[in-house]
Design a protein around this nucleic acid. Structure first.
Lengths: 117, 117
DNA sequence: ATCTTATATCGCAAATATACGATTAATAAG
DNA sequence: CTTATTAATCGTATATTTGCGATATAAGAT
């Protein structure tokens, strides 16, 4: 079948949802790439500021790692401070706790009885 | 500046990471859209099979909702059973517990002392 | 002042995700 | 059998993400 109609923009409907849903989804999106999980893992294991070490551990170009770090920072999951020509990143544990709390709150309701499936 | 070089395919590097990182990221990706959070919320509140009700609650077309349900199903977060002309979905609580466990395991290491930031 | 080092940003290409209408499939109802 | 109902899938357009090389920036070293 041919489609002759010109479609309207694939509208971004994300704003049609509640703030809680949006925030949770935003946070999950930051976690939705193995490179970012790996970065967080490295930061968690060191629990101190790392910078170029992350690049040397990951199988990605420096610019790509920098971009992933930026996304984690924008999501609030890590904190970055500039120290001369190098940057220093740490996990924002409070943000993680908040994520866990919100996440559990949404889904821990009726875990006891399953009506079907 | 002009770029004359033809770039190599933007290679998918996701397989360069460990299975645990990939699985966690995969799960997070399924949660990375407010519509899917909203769907899970509805399922959690009812704790029983819902189908077209989800469509009527969400501000999205039926085909779009069906697509989101498929993604949640592929990620293993929900279970779907066909019941005549209608489909019935439930939350897969075990998958959620696993996600929570893996997630905590990765990041609960050295939460106590923060060296900087 | 120039060079080096570490990191962020820009510009692009490719891949993936989002969204919807149209269609199909499968069963139920008449 | 025909029709109605429910949901999945297909085809398309658009938006966003991923990734890298090139460049810019910023501070320390020489």
């Amino acid at each position: 079948m041919r489609y002759k109609i010109q479609y309207a923009m694939a509208l971004n409907k994300k704003n049609s949802f509640g703030k809680k849903e949006q925030d949770l989804a935003e946070c999950a999106k930051a976690l939705a790439h193995p490179a970012r999980i790996a970065i967080l893992k490295v930061l968690a294991q060191h629990n101190e500021c790392i910078c170029g070490e992350i690049v040397s551990v990951l199988p990605l170009a420096q610019s790509t790692v920098s971009q992933h770090l930026k996304e984690l920072k924008n999501a609030g999951l890590i904190i970055g401070t500039v120290d001369g020509p190098r940057s220093c990143y740490c996990i924002n544990w409070k943000a993680f706790e908040k994520f866990n709390r919100e996440f559990s709150f949404l889904f821990n309701h009726l875990k006891t009885e399953q009506a079907c499936c």
